[in-house]
Amino acid sequence: MFSYLNRCSTEFGKEALKSSLLQPDVAAIGQRQKAVKELADKVEFRQKLFAYGSIHEGKKTDLEKLKEWIDSKETLIHKTLYLLLMVFPVVTIGSLVYYLIKTVMQLSVFFYSLFVINLIIAFFVCKRITKQLSVSSSVTKILQSYKEQLQLIEEEKFQSDLLKRYQQKLKDGNQSASQLLKQLASLFDYLETIINLLVSILLNGLFLFIFIFCIAWATGRSNMQPKLMTGFF
């Protein structure tokens, strides 16, 4: 029976199907039947939903790591320290611009010194966030496919009350669930940029990019915590 019903593309979906078969919510059977009847006609919608999920089949451990990350309260950097350290990139860029205008030799030495100082600071922060980096490997692609799936659901027009209720749940709040996932995916995308050594040296030397990332990382996570936890994990 499971193989006839199962068109779930995620482990969470399969678990949900299993529990709804083993412990069905009897009171909601009527509503579910209406929802199934409506979805039966929406072949293309169902197939697209399944296809997005099947492209990057996430391992359960990756998603559990992601859930742990969203749950954790650990902050990588304090906001005051961040603002203090932001003086370095401002001065670095300022000295570079001034050097390009005036071409004073001493300024280039000052710029290179600041560039190296920025790299040293970034190196110490990188050591702290190595643990967080382990989350990212395949998560970006999984999050992107989840985002596509949710966007598909948000844009579809439904008639049945149950489907409308599920859809509304995704749209509640300032941002829709797909928008939140898009932000989360781009955060992990930035993380992959940091891993790229050449880009990392350039971005950290000039802007202390790692700090900007840490703040975006923490803000993004705190924005997503309530919705992601109640919504789809």
Binding site: F2, R7, K18, K48
Partner: peptide
């Protein structure tokens, strides 16, 4: 992926051979 999904569905209807997870690892 979408074309593969349709190919699998057509085969399922024709031969009753499922390409999908049968839930064997979920048996209680």
């Amino acid at each position: 992926t979408l074309s593969k999904v349709n190919e699998d569905e057509a085969r399922f209807v024709e031969t009753n051979q499922s390409q999908y997870d049968e839930g064997r690892n979920m048996k209680m």
